[in-house]
Simulated scan of single mutants.
Amino acid sequence: MDIVDFEVPELKKMKRPPPVLYCRGRKRLLTRRKVSIVGTRRPNAYTKSVIGQIAGGLAQRGVVVVSGAAMGVDALAHRGAGAADTIAVLGCGLNHRYPAVNASLIEEIETEGLVLSRFEADFRAAPWSFVVRNEIVVALGEVLVVGQADRNSGTMRSVEFAKRMGKEIFVLPHRLGESEGTNDLLKEGSAEAIYDLDAFLLRFGEAEENGADDLLEFCRCFPTYEETLKRFGDRLLEAELEGRVLIRNGLVVPT
């Protein structure tokens, strides 16, 4: 375990910046452009697909995706960006990979990306420590993307941090009765809807020509077979025959 031993200007936006940040991984990710992505632990299929595309698109532009390593949207954001282009902020000490369901993901980010914590190594998560984590997640990002959120949820507490810090807030357009928290933000004019994914990503420049396979990037978030086939056509069938993806329970999974 290490500490962040240089100034992180983004943290000055916090009401009480952490006196120390413990870390495992590549500290220099903190010096790159960053976008925070948060949302519900129970995303619908639409949210899963779009968040994966947003995170992957940001990573292709050299932007680091920041989230809180929780189930749902957080994990989708980390996976969509890829472990090497993501920062996970924990609500516990670094000796605990919590939640357990994401332990392997957190371990991968420790190796290839960056995991941060405000807390000493053996600290166990408490309800208030997740609030602290959420503020750090929001502070680090240039903007905040909210994938999906219910009213009065922890995600909406993160939105309050973003408002106080003067961050731009972007949300996915959802149907009536879904993601009422983000729909409220649109109604009150506090957030901007991402109607055009390409236009949103162009805010961060053009995708880098690094030879990444866009089909495999898309499949990182386990899209349905139907939506992947619609988007990639015969390329999906070729990838399946080559063993680069598997079809499991109607979802496409990269090998």
Rank of each mutant, 00 (worst) to 15 (best):
D2Q: 15
I3M: 11
F6H: 11
L11D: 08
L11W: 03
L11V: 12
L11M: 10
K12M: 09
M14T: 07
P18G: 12
C23M: 15
C23A: 15
C23Y: 03
R24Q: 12
G25W: 08
G25M: 00
K27G: 04
L29W: 02
L30E: 05
V35E: 05
S36F: 07
S36T: 12
I37L: 10
I37Q: 01
V38E: 06
T40C: 10
R41V: 10
A45W: 06
A45H: 06
S49P: 01
G52W: 06
Q53Y: 04
G56W: 00
Q60W: 05
V65T: 12
G68T: 10
G68P: 12
A70P: 11
H78F: 09
R79S: 12
A83M: 09
A84K: 15
D85Q: 13
T86A: 15
I87R: 02
A88K: 02
A88H: 02
A88C: 13
A88N: 01
A88W: 04
V89Y: 03
V89M: 05
L90R: 00
C92N: 00
L94A: 05
H96Y: 13
H96P: 08
R97C: 14
Y98N: 06
Y98K: 03
P99G: 05
A100I: 11
V101T: 12
N102R: 04
E108F: 06
E108G: 05
E112S: 12
G113R: 03
L114C: 02
V115E: 02
L116C: 07
L116I: 00
R118S: 05
F119G: 07
A121C: 07
F123I: 13
A126F: 08
A126S: 10
W128C: 08
S129K: 03
R133I: 13
R133D: 04
N134R: 02
N134D: 15
E135H: 10
I136V: 15
A139Q: 01
L140V: 06
D150S: 14
S153M: 09
G154P: 01
T155F: 03
T155I: 04
M156W: 01
R157M: 14
R157N: 13
R157F: 10
V159Q: 01
F161N: 01
F161L: 02
A162V: 08
R164G: 09
R164S: 15
M165G: 04
K167E: 01
E168L: 11
V171A: 08
P173N: 09
P173S: 04
L176Q: 14
G177V: 14
E178C: 10
T182Q: 03
L185C: 03
L186Y: 11
A191I: 03
A191V: 13
D198I: 09
D198W: 10
F200Y: 12
F200C: 11
L202Q: 08
F204D: 00
E206A: 14
A207S: 08
D213F: 07
D214W: 03
L215M: 04
L216R: 01
L216Q: 06
E217G: 06
F218W: 15
F218H: 15
C219K: 03
C221I: 02
T224W: 02
E227R: 05
K230S: 12
R231K: 15
R231A: 15
R231E: 13
R235S: 08
E238P: 03
L241K: 06
E242V: 01
G243N: 00
R244Y: 01
V245N: 00
N249C: 11
V253A: 02
P254Y: 10
